[in-house]
Design a protein around this nucleic acid. Sequence first.
DNA 1: CGTCCAGGTCTAC
DNA 2: GGTAGACCTGGACGC
Length: 312
Amino acid sequence: MTSGDPIELALRGPGGERVDLWRTLISHGFHDLAPMAIDEVDRSLDLTLRTPRGMPRRVRIAAADGRRGHARVEILGRPATSAASRDAIARGAARVLRLDQDLSAFYALAAGDPDLAWVTAGAGRMLRSPTVWEDVVKTLCTTNCSWSLTTTMVNALVRELGEPAAGFADDPLANAFPTPVAMAGRDERFYREVVRSGYRAPYFVRLAELVAGGGVDLEALADASRLDLPDGEVEALLRSLPGIGPYAAANVMMTLGRSSRLILDSWSRPAYVRAAGRRKLPSDTQIERRFRRYGNDAGLAFWLFVTKHWAT
DNA sequence: CGTCCAGGTCTAC
DNA sequence: GGTAGACCTGGACGC
């Protein structure tokens, strides 16, 4: 094997569960936000990963042809890399696909639910960003606005403040997502006038300063060693961040593999009504009751319930 | 042209 | 603790 060969990842969960790669890539809308880019024909996802040293690298994740149950991670732009960079890229890709998450207990429950038995074929991994920071900022960009404005804001952040990926100098939307330090270097006026973030501008400034200054360690929330931390504490920490309320906290938590909270918003509520074949919108409490049997995975069960049709 | 509202949150009662 | 009202932006509508 040379340094330019694609990296292969076995698509199996820690409990031996099946992993549906495509279903994972389209598990929620963030695959449409820069620097990620989905190709629905090729069924591949491009994204940009930082490496310990050197420029960020652009990679493409797709099914490995000829090897069932494996994903291929191709390094784009400048394929040749050091062993350390390849290792970082392999770990980054596995992290984005959530291959470390054990869904076997959830699948055991879902198998007995006629509405959700289908998920045991490999659904339920929520695509996540290379960093918790990126998922928090992007989630903030989804609050109280249309998806097109979300795209406008994220594109501006990546284009203006992200570090170019090796071999992609002419494609600013392939830049790595900006670091907290890079975002802390801009003022409220920049976020209003360039990013078009409106009243969210001061949130971006405060959030970036908080994280860049070490006041909050978001990345620790993804550490396996912190899994003993109760969901309530994680939620409280997220809710303490500027602009992060109940919806945003639940959304970030699901990317952390903490899916006890239902993501109830103006999109998911009507989606539930359609998926359940109901005529009118039930209260949030009624919806929560339907998924209570899933315990700490209630939010995941709800999300899969309302996005079932995405796969087909 | 104006009004409404999108994958909400914050502040002030 | 619960609930109005304000809040940027831009696309989709109705007039």
